[in-house]
Write a protein that binds this DNA or RNA. Structure first.
Lengths: 188, 188
DNA sequence: CCGACCGATGTCAGTTGCTGTCATCAGCCT
DNA sequence: AGGCTGATGACAGCAACTGACATCGGTCGG
């Protein structure tokens, strides 16, 4: 233990989330976040690259999860199915945190800069998944397209999951979204 | 005519492009851009919402183009083919500006903030195309998926077009990318 | 047990993106 | 002539972010 209160990073995340909800992202200053966490502005920027990143701390873990899920898929699985299966596994983890997911998504939906950050995280995920598919022997245009298509499937399923008044099953929505994509791209 | 040199906006665009190439995006200040254009920093922000936007002034036009192309597609065209045809039309327009496209893409590739901006422009394009498809009678998950898939197809074709040492035909790359997507999503 | 070292934090000054506000100055209209 | 308008300049100010240096406990080798 150091001489300071423990878990500075966690306190900063918590404080930021609260303030973003209370007054919105733009109306919150980093100094306010730091103050609520009992720290200084400078320390905030030692833990997070910028004011947005505090909302995306879980992205790295999620990406690793999906990458290993794709890497561990049976060899018999087609690329798009390997990606979709990984997405369903991730979806299952989100299933019981729907309320926090909604809250977070509401914050992001209210601010363009946050949407930009989310999009680049998804793009990074796409590159990682494409790389994993290539390591499984999938050749290049197919690997990138399967990864991008998988992300599109997830995005649309996630939107529906968040916006439904009932509480649908996210993995099921992902599977349905994948089936819909397959139908839509069924060649003439 | 006013009392000032004409085409302030164009001069700002030109100056920004030059400086972004000369020293990179981050190393260029808005004050420098304005000075090279013979204007002030304040005037820059009257013409462009922020320092990045100056690289995306054509996005609106391109989006309108694609939306009308999808809207004007024959009723017999499947959603994904209507989108792909629109992408091919846009690709044909880019075909003879490959050098400037490469230059621009090199600037964007060197900076994460610019990549974020590009991604949100593509996302906005996706929403617009999905809306157009819906107006054509396509139901919702299919419309969004067709639009997103079409954008993925374009992204991957564009990357190849930019990175090839030879000078391939962009519309052809788009068609090939679409075929690849159809192959990849061919359900079992 | 002591002093050197280390890692997390604080302090402070500075740059830059971006905004609000008011002044200026031609041309245009009546 | 006089007033209106639209584009620009001038200036002050805020907030995000960075670099440099100080501080303070704990740890570890001697």
């Amino acid at each position: 233990m150091g001489r300071w209160e423990p878990n500075a990073r966690g306190r900063l995340e918590q404080a930021a989330l609260e303030l973003y909800i209370e007054r919105g992202f733009e109306q919150t200053t980093v100094a306010e976040i730091a103050k609520r966490a009992g720290l200084t502005e400078r320390t905030f920027f030692r833990h997070f690259a910028d004011k947005r990143e505090v909302l995306f701390s879980g992205a790295g873990t999620l990406q690793e999860l999906l990458v290993t899920a794709v890497a561990d898929a049976p060899d018999s699985a087609a690329p798009i199915d390997a990606v979709a299966a990984a997405m369903q596994a991730a979806g299952a983890l989100l299933q019981d945190r729907r309320d926090s997911a909604r809250q977070r998504q509401a914050i992001i939906a209210a601010n363009a800069e946050l949407q930009e950050r989310e999009l680049i995280k998804l793009a990074s995920l796409g590159s990682a998944l494409a790389g994993t598919l290539r390591r499984r022997g999938v050749s290049d245009p197919a690997a990138s397209l399967a990864a991008e298509a998988g992300i599109a499937v997830f995005k649309i399923a996630f939107e529906r999951w968040i916006s439904e008044t009932s509480q649908p099953d996210l993995p099921r929505l992902i599977r349905e979204s994948l089936d819909e994509l397959k139908a839509v791209t069924a060649g003439k």
